[in-house]
């Protein structure tokens, strides 16, 4: 009799659980899927820059005017700005001109530099380029800055 009663309780409990779980899963629902949402990043090309002078081997005297000449073109057609940098070792660079117009030349009197050998670097970047992709060119060889003989 006791065993029969136990069996009855187990049956009722199982039935309740099944009923509860099936009720949980059986609620009304609707699903809408929107696939293939996409964000694609832009592509920016590097500005093409070529430094013509000073490109190595030049001797420049204090007080003389150096005409820096370059060509810088942006493949995407954006307007470029140019900065000029000098270095004695090609590692540490000091800026001499900031955000100059891309005219292809710049007249420069290197008064604040000490005598020695230098490299010059032209860096071009489009002001409206959110990627800030730069193009640059460095003198092929050292040029010399001398005091007057």
């Amino acid at each position: 009799m006791k065993r029969l009663l136990l069996g009855w309780f187990a049956l009722v409990l199982a039935g309740t659980l099944v009923a509860t779980s099936s009720r949980m899963e059986a609620i009304f629902s609707d699903v809408v899927e929107v696939p293939e949402n996409a964000v694609v990043a832009d592509v920016r090309s590097r500005p093409l820059v070529e430094l013509f002078s000073p490109n190595g081997g030049e001797i420049i005297y204090f007080g003389d005017e150096v005409v820096v000449q370059w060509r810088a073109v942006d493949p995407d057609g954006l307007r470029l700005r140019v900065s000029l940098w000098v270095s004695q070792d090609g590692v540490e660079w000091k800026r001499v001109v900031k955000r100059a117009k891309n005219t292809g030349f710049y007249r420069w009197r290197p008064r604040k530099l000490s005598p020695g050998s230098y490299l010059l670097k032209v860096v071009a970047v489009a002001r409206r380029d959110p990627w800030r992709v730069v193009g640059e060119d460095v003198s092929d060889g050292f040029w010399e800055l001398r005091e007057d003989d």
């Binding site: 609620i27 009304f28 629902s29 609707d30 699903v31 809408v32 899927e33 929107v34 696939p35 293939e36 949402n37 996409a38 964000v39 694609v40 990043a41 832009d42 592509v43 920016r44 959110p130 990627w131 800030r132 992709v133």
Partner: peptide, 28 residues
């Protein structure tokens, strides 16, 4: 809201694409 944050390493993401699905549900 989507925002492409400006970072010093932005260039590594050039031409990349992110694709995703959005699944909407309405339950009783």
């Amino acid at each position: 809201d989507l925002r492409f944050v400006k970072r010093s390493d932005n260039n590594v993401a050039q031409s990349d694409r992110v694709r995703f699905n959005i699944v909407f549900h309405l339950d009783q």
